[in-house]
């Protein structure tokens, strides 16, 4: 089960609100962080987040559980850890 942690701050709010809106993930908040849990891959499309590249490539600063399968200027995809 992949997990993505996000800092709950204005610069990442585009990604946080997108993941909440999509409704496919379990979203929890605590102490300034947002936890995104999923039974399937977690996918974030940069075009839907309104984030520029300088900030986008720092999106995973709060960490994750699983495996980053894609992280380019268009998309972040986190899958469950292999094995």
């Amino acid at each position: 089960m992949p997990v993505l942690y996000l800092l709950d701050v204005p610069e990442f709010s585009g990604a946080v609100s997108l993941l909440e809106r999509e409704g496919a993930y379990r979203v929890a908040r605590a102490n300034g962080y947002v936890r995104i849990e999923s039974d399937t891959d977690i996918v974030v499309e940069r075009a839907k987040t309104n984030m520029n590249e300088a900030v986008w490539f720092g999106l995973t600063v709060a960490g994750f559980d699983g495996a980053i399968e894609e992280f380019n200027s268009d998309r972040l995809r986190i899958a469950a850890a292999a094995g």
């Binding site: 942690y5 929890a28 605590a30 936890r35 995973t60 600063v61 709060a62 960490g63 559980d65």
Partner: peptide, 16 residues
């Protein structure tokens, strides 16, 4: 980042 995720799970979520 995986280790950071563990630290956040422990210090932010488990603590809450």
């Amino acid at each position: 980042w995986r280790l950071k995720g563990q630290l956040v799970a422990q210090n932010a979520f488990a603590a809450a």
